[in-house]
Amino acid sequence: MAAGGDHGSPDSYRSPLASRYASPEMCFVFSDRYKFRTWRQLWLWLAEAEQTLGLPITDEQIQEMKSNLENIDFKMAAEEEKRLRHDVMAHVHTFGHCCPKAAGIIHLGATSCYVGDNTDLIILRNALDLLLPKLARVISRLADFAKERASLPTLGFTHFQPAQLTTVGKRCCLWIQDLCMDLQNLKRVRDDLRFRGVKGTTGTQASFLQLFEGDDHKVEQLDKMVTEKAGFKRAFIITGQTYTRKVDIEVLSVLASLGASVHKICTDIRLLANLKEMEEPFEKQQIGSSAMPYKRNPMRSERCCSLARHLMTLVMDPLQTASVQWFERTLDDSANRRICLAEAFLTADTILNTLQNISEGLVVYPKVIERRIRQELPFMATENIIMAMVKAGGSRQDCHEKIRVLSQQAASVVKQEGGDNDLIERIQVDAYFSPIHSQLDHLLDPSSFTGRASQQVQRFLEEEVYPLLKPYESVMKVKAELCL
């Protein structure tokens, strides 16, 4: 049975990233139509530049190519590739079939990587351009969430054990800070992308030097003109047959890092959902379990974690691919890159769409948070109580021993009897502590235990987050809708 299948058929496997999760716009960027249309555009740009620099290419040939950029006979191309065992030459023939007058000058002087690699770089750039505003929107939604809850005390956790208090907004800023680093890295790697350009079979530009009869300047002009037509500021000066596969490492490393950030955020949300302090959106008709109707599973956060793990592992592909590119190139890269580049971007696209949807509907339960604080705060307040007693004339050592005994009794009630923490009640009825009984409410005010959390939130948002989001103001209103 021949390899390949009808990918629109229910009898043929289709990647869930495309069929179930990723956005239509990201799927289109990695589609065959987008790819092969870009090949034709690159052939047109090459012909236009070659004509401008004096090669015998007519206006009629150029116009014929322009008129057929979208006229792609995919069936013919597939048949040609089956016959020739070469995808680029299959599309040269297919393009030439609908451009008979231009057929002889299509791909003039070029090698397969002229269309293959340059198209990949265009796709990487455009895919990054799709991700950047999506990530900015996630940051914006979380920034709104953090600002609104900047002063809401909550129990902090280290080692997932109760620690000092923080605020809900401050905790959210930990998430935002990681995503801001990801946004900066995505922008950097996007701006650092260079075009492969017009380089020939081993990167020496020998074929173009021959076409222009040894004119170095025209060869350099050709490279520059096509690079500018493709919208790049610069091209690699040095290439082998391909652009260095280190570029793929750079791009997928940034995406993998984004995956790590999203995994951490969504894990926190899942843990908070278990504590009943916070939940992701839950639709009115949504079913959490087929057997347990009360369940409210954090399905979206779980999906993000599941896909983020996949995204983090994909960076190993370009690392290994770059390491086995012998001399000017081997074909070890080809099949692998067809999979890992598309999957990385479709996965990143999915987790950003999902995280935006989550961040637009996060639900906080202040009463649950308050109750958990009441359970733990008495123990945390013991040092403040000791200091207040010393100020009232008591002995630190005597007070410490009193607190120690009462704390152990209260802990026994919590752990052995399943009761509430009654340390404060014990202190309130103990005559030894009568000098500070009137101060206990103040000493137990949760806001006095959150330090500068709310001020940190305000400063972080104003100095770091809002300036970073400013270039994306025009796209901030787009909502994230999930079908599944």
Rank of each mutant, 00 (worst) to 15 (best):
S112Y: 00
Y21L: 00
Q210G: 11
H442I: 12
L484K: 15
K170A: 02
D120K: 12
C27K: 12
Y432P: 04
C173F: 05
Q416N: 10
P467A: 10
G203H: 00
K75R: 12
D216N: 12
N126T: 15
L314A: 12
Q408S: 14
N68A: 08
S412A: 10
E463T: 10
A235H: 13
G203P: 01
S323A: 12
L423M: 13
S207I: 07
P281R: 12
F460W: 06
A103F: 09
S447D: 12
I385H: 05
Q205W: 00
M312W: 02
R141Q: 05
Q61C: 12
P378Y: 07
M389I: 10
R141L: 14
I269S: 02
H437I: 11
E250F: 07
V475M: 15
P162D: 02
L468V: 11
A342G: 12
Q375C: 07
D59Y: 10
T239S: 13
T204Q: 15
Q325P: 02
L53G: 04
H400G: 04
R85G: 02
T204S: 14
H93L: 08
Q285K: 15
T38N: 00
C399W: 05
G109V: 00
A47T: 01
H437F: 05
C98N: 13
P100M: 08
A388R: 06
A273V: 05
P133R: 15
L69Q: 08
L132N: 13
R20K: 03
I373W: 05
Y34N: 13
G156R: 00
I57N: 00
V390W: 03
K218Q: 10
Q416H: 09
L468N: 13
D349W: 05
L142I: 08
Q61T: 09
K479T: 14
Q285L: 14
S261Y: 02
R83H: 15
D349V: 05
S15E: 10
S257R: 05
A78L: 09
G231F: 04
Y114A: 00
L42H: 04
K233Q: 13
K224V: 10
Q439R: 07
G240C: 01
T201Q: 04
F30Q: 08
S257Y: 08
L352R: 02
V475L: 14
I351H: 03
G288Q: 04
S290G: 02
D349P: 02
G394R: 11
A2Q: 15
D144H: 13
V324N: 12
R33Y: 09
Q428T: 12
V413R: 10
H97W: 11
A273S: 13
P471S: 15
E48F: 00
G197M: 02
Q221H: 13
G419E: 12
A392P: 04
S112N: 03
N421G: 05
I72L: 10
